[in-house]
């Protein structure tokens, strides 16, 4: 599992701009929004996004879930519980890399 978490984390690191938003709270919001969305798309069924923010996260999630299924064949063999654990792990790693262990000194500046 750890190896799988690392593979997805590495993909996100190399590809996704949403993880690098300006402030810690934006990054937190995006990690939750996009990765929960991605997990939902892989497990289905997906609820209709209600807010513009949700739709935006789902837009990123759609592209990401497609990339995951095409790059990591094993993801299709995982069941709902396994996927949930996987994404919990990825979210934790992402938080660590881009928020809690980040050296970016601007992450906690109050204003934009």
């Amino acid at each position: 599992m750890e190896n799988k978490i690392e593979q997805l984390t590495e993909y996100i690191q190399k590809d996704c701009l949403w993880q690098f938003f300006s402030r810690a709270w934006d990054r937190e919001e995006n990690i939750e929004g996009v990765l929960n969305g991605t997990e939902a798309l892989l497990t289905g069924p997906v609820e209709e996004a209600t807010s513009d923010m949700d739709r935006c996260h789902m837009a990123d999630a759609k592209v990401l879930s497609r990339a995951f299924t095409s790059s990591f064949g094993w993801i299709r063999d995982m069941n709902k519980e396994e996927l949930h654990a996987l994404f919990q792990g990825v979210k934790q790693r992402m938080r660590e890399i881009v928020i809690t262990s980040s050296h970016n000194e601007e992450l906690h500046v109050k204003n934009y």
Binding site: D52, M53, C56
Partner: peptide, 9 residues
Amino acid sequence: YGIPRLDMD
């Protein structure tokens, strides 16, 4: 204004 931000290249 609650307008979402979508970053792209």
